[in-house]
Amino acid sequence: MTILDLLSWLCLTLGGLVGVIGAFGLLRFPDFYSRQHAAGTTDTLCAMLILLGLGLQAGLSLAAFKLAAILLFLIITSPVATHALANAARQSGLKALTSDDTSDDNSGSKP
C-alpha cells in the first residue's frame, strides 16, 4: 500500500463519512429549507472528496479527465436544482421555520 493509496483511501472514507452525516442531517433538521443545507453538504464536499480520491487512483489519464468533468457538472447543476426547488417551495407558499424575530421576512407569501 503506497502513500498514494493511503491518501486516496482517506479521501474516499472521509467523503463517505461526510455523505452519511449530510444524509443524517436531512433526517434530523426540522423543515424543508434547513434540510436543503444538509443536502448541500453532500452535494459539494462529499462529491469533491470521493472524486478526488478516485482521481488519485486514476493518475493522469482519461479517467481522471472524466472524473473532473463529472465534478464540474455536479458543481454547476447542483445549486441550480437546489435553487429551483427552494424557489418552487417559496412560490407555493411553504413557510420557512425561523428561530426568532430578527429576520426581516419570515413569511413565504409573495409580496
Binding site: V18, I21, G22, F24, G25, R28, F29, D31, Y33, S34, H37, A38, G40, T41, T44, L45, M48, A96, L97, T98, S99, D100, T102, S103, D104, D105, N106
Partner: peptide
C-alpha cells in the same frame, strides 16, 4: 465551500437542543 461545509457538519452533529437558527434575509 470547505469552511461552510465544516460549519454545517458541526451543526448536524451538535448535541445541543437547537443547533440551528434558520432565517430568511433580504
Amino acid at each position: 465551500i470547505s469552511l461552510s461545509n465544516l460549519d454545517v457538519l458541526r451543526r448536524i452533529l451538535s448535541l445541543r437542543k437547537n443547533p440551528i437558527s434558520p432565517r430568511v434575509q433580504t
